[in-house]
Design a protein around this nucleic acid. Sequence first.
DNA 1: ACCACCATGTAACAGGTTACATGATTAA
DNA 2: TTAATCATGTAACCTGTTACATGGTGGT
Lengths: 186, 186
Amino acid sequence: MADGKNWAITATEAALLGLLTRGEMSGYDIQHAAETSGGFFWAPAKSRIYAVLPQLVTRGFATSRSVTQESRPTKQLYRITRAGRDALQRWLEEPPSMEPERAPLLLKIYFGELLEPAILISHVRKLKAEADALVERLSALEQAPSGASLFGDLTIRHGLEWAHAMSRWAESAEREIEARLAVPAR
Amino acid sequence: MADGKNWAITATEAALLGLLTRGEMSGYDIQHAAETSGGFFWAPAKSRIYAVLPQLVTRGFATSRSVTQESRPTKQLYRITRAGRDALQRWLEEPPSMEPERAPLLLKIYFGELLEPAILISHVRKLKAEADALVERLSALEQAPSGASLFGDLTIRHGLEWAHAMSRWAESAEREIEARLAVPAR
DNA sequence: ACCACCATGTAACAGGTTACATGATTAA
DNA sequence: TTAATCATGTAACCTGTTACATGGTGGT
């Protein structure tokens, strides 16, 4: 008693519990599910997954059972509990807050006066290349017939919108730097 | 010897050293500079600032001196050293990597099937409101004559592009959720 | 013969947050 | 008299990463 929000969970815990609502899974399964499905917006390190799962059990949000297999290592399967669903529900219902980006690139731009223009431009070009690559990856995913669920689609579109914005910004930034700094052609 | 990249610095250290290139500052000064100028893309907690500054001194990247004031607390002023500039330079020149967003909101969308459509929509609307507010803030900053430096401008434009993208996405997401889920009007 | 997959974890470390603690000065 | 500004820090905690460790099975 006097526990103080013992049911509150973190985003990572919510991610795991969310995946567990789709069915009983092992840590290994979860890692792969996280990497493939929503991987581009939430992919904890595997050590984190294996650390969090037992905590969920301790807190009553999941149960686990050992499954001994022949010709495969023994695994732990986790199943979400009623309390786990409730905690997840509460987390999902909390209004999310948009946290501003914490991008090292922006620091490099912000202190751009300390860099040779050519290097700055190469940074910006690299960002654009990566953003464009992400656009391609996500476009492919979007077209895929398998992942045609509304919610998966929305996250993909979010990523696309973001990547497009980055690409556009990078292009205009490059032009601007070139125009204003008269980059010497070597 | 066998020090192994002792000159390598983190993004936060780079941010502090970068600010110190503009002149001698105290922890307090740095906190305010970070909040106001680039605050929307890099603002460490104040306890972090006070923790990092002495480390910079220990590692030879800055020097500090005590300044006793009347009618104000004594303060420490930090000045970047040659080694500090070198370390900063190396960090700035390293090609940055675009790390994908880690947004709790996306998790809430991704597991949207577990939420009532009305709540989902309120989440999306909140994001849009915050994105729009950021657009206004940054637009104002952009117009301001004081911050008319190329690099400051580029970071502001980055933020604007991002915020616009989020706003656009939120709007289309809201429409789509409404269309596909037939939200009951209460 | 080698590599990828299945499967779980530990250890060491890095980076960060919030809340607490203190206390004088100055402007409304 | 109330609040903000100046100014520095500690303590407790949380979240996360990389590298290490182990070892059988199945495909090329």
